[in-house]
């Protein structure tokens, strides 16, 4: 706990001592950690592999942008409202889709995300209500500085991680993990499986929408193809798996590791670094299925009892 607080304090103060680029890199890591962490909430604890979380990223992006540009609301207010919109949509979409199990849920959500992309692309043309700008996208005003993005992303990441810790310890979390481990058994022993999953689904939709809304304004340009692109989903999944599925800090480790490795290798070996990253991911998933957190746990166990008691 103390370590967590010290780390958090260090991250809050980091912008004082770091250069603009370090801040951007940190913001990026927080962003991916928040996204991978949100995905981990449902997949890691509830056992439901969602391949369409990017729907809420896109919704968050466009809702925030429209509230800012059309309703002229401040960024943070728009972001907050965008999160609520995403939760409401998650409620509507989650109600039928979360009844699907296993691979059907994965395929269903993947299809959902693709449909959402096509709908967003065609929205303006079909409805006559300009919301997404079609394939042209929406250009946002430049923000005064990048520091707000750092703190918003940090906050979302902290909230996601706190939620994961809460899931590890609360009764709600036990119920959810029971569902993740054996849903039929959990249901038979009185867990309202569907409601539990839907709540987590909505929570993760909220966090993902906040991340998306922030990223959109940060980039100052959004379009449906990118905002609803499956690449974002896959990166979330890879980071969560790499870090360690079903652990609160796994997604953070996965996001930090991948971003930093890509930074380190990408700037030195511009033409070959992707091969190296691919090999790392394959190696981790083959030899260390419990991810980076699994390695960390093993290292600590071998390191002796001291660390063990501290945890």
């Amino acid at each position: 706990m103390r370590i967590a607080l010290v780390t958090l304090a260090a991250l809050v103060l980091l912008p004082l001592g770091a250069g603009a680029y370090a801040i951007r890199l940190a913001t990026l890591i927080f962003m991916w950690a928040a996204l991978a962490g949100s995905w981990n909430l449902l997949a890691g604890y509830g056992g439901a592999v969602d391949l369409g979380p990017v729907v809420y990223y896109g919704i968050g992006t466009f809702a925030t942008a429209n509230l800012m540009m059309k309703a002229h609301l401040p960024f943070l207010v728009s972001l907050g409202l965008a999160g609520l919109i995403a939760m409401a949509i998650a409620f509507l979409l989650g109600t039928p889709t979360l009844r699907l199990r296993g691979a059907y849920f994965a395929i269903g959500t993947l299809a959902l995300a693709e449909s959402a992309k096509q709908l967003a692309l065609a929205w303006d043309r079909l409805t006559g209500i300009p919301l997404t700008g079609g394939s042209a996208g929406i250009s946002l005003p430049l923000s005064a500085g990048y520091l707000p993005f750092y703190y918003v992303m940090l906050t979302v990441m902290v909230l996601v991680t706190a939620t994961a810790f809460w899931l590890e310890r609360s009764k709600f979390g036990y119920g959810l993990r029971a569902v993740g481990e054996n849903d039929l058994l959990a249901e038979a022993s009185g867990v309202d499986l569907h409601r539990l999953k839907r709540r987590v689904y909505m929570m993760s939709a909220l966090f993902i929408a906040w991340t998306g809304g922030t990223a959109g304004y940060w980039l100052s340009y959004i379009n449906a193809t990118e905002a609803f692109g499956a690449a974002t989903t896959f990166q979330m999944v890879v980071m969560a798996l790499l870090g360690g599925l079903g652990t609160p800090l796994g997604p953070l480790a996965g996001a930090g590791f991948l971003c930093l490795v890509s930074e380190l290798l990408g700037t030195r070996f511009v033409y070959h670094y992707l091969i190296a990253i691919g090999s790392i991911i394959v190696a981790v998933s083959l030899f260390m299925p419990s991810g980076l957190m699994g390695i960390a746990r093993m290292a600590i166990h071998r390191g002796g009892k001291r660390a063990e008691t501290a945890s």
């Binding site: 370590i3 967590a4 250069g19 890591i29 800090l249 930090g256 980076l292 957190m293 960390a296 945890s311």
Partner: peptide
């Protein structure tokens, strides 16, 4: 215990920039 990882990442990060 997992905090160590984060601190390591953080250090790397500052180093990075």
């Amino acid at each position: 215990m997992e905090g160590h990882r984060i601190i390591a990442i953080l250090l790397l990060l500052t180093f990075a920039g």
